[in-house]
Amino acid sequence: MLIDIRALSKKYLLGTVRVLALNEISLSIERNEYVAIMGPSGSGKSTLMNIIGCLDVPTSGSYTLNGQAVASLSDDELATIRNKEIGFVFQTFNLLPRADALHNVELPLIYKGVPKAERRIIARETLEKVGLGDRMDHKPNELSGGQRQRVAIARALVNNPSIILADEPTGNLDSTTGEEIMKLFADLNAAGNTIIVVTHEEEIARKSKRIIRLRDGRIVSDETVEHEAAV
């Protein structure tokens, strides 16, 4: 089992008001799954993603990633797990504005300690994989929204992580570009990658293989998507 979550809760204290962002969630995800997480705004989707991505830690409950209990890890150990196991794709791309596409993709490799020459080669290959072989030396402001998100996906892929986490990756894109990005995720999943996508567009969620719906910090449904045979 890749992800094993048991009775996991996350509480926030806003002044005197206690917010229960996640309420005793249990969930497991296998390798090579393609999961969509849906739910209304404030239902806890991002909170769950951040915990799965080891950016945040739960208030209670357990989270086991790849057989390793995450709760007890130090900040630096979490950083190492994020580096090796997780690839993030954000709604706002989060690229370094002054670095070109190639350098943006290299970033996780730098912190992994990969030597420069090797880094270049891997980053190049990964950019080619997402269809940006001809845009390596472009800065983010010289790229379209869809291209920027492809750079971000290449960056998420470059360390060969166990999971790719995408929090509303198409939220800032028009619907055509959004579909292209979802097609890319489907291809990556077909190639063996585990993918978890947060979205609140039903149509986009339908592209995944499993939809988990949240409401008020609880899982309200967890269903497999029936795909018609490809035309």
């Binding site: 900040d75 630096d76 950083a79 190492t80 994020r82 912190y111």
Partner: peptide
């Protein structure tokens, strides 16, 4: 700040 957050998200440790 966002750059720092991103670097941490992709694996930068405190020391980095």
């Amino acid at each position: 700040t966002r750059e720092i957050g991103l670097r941490k998200a992709v694996g930068a440790k405190k020391n980095n």
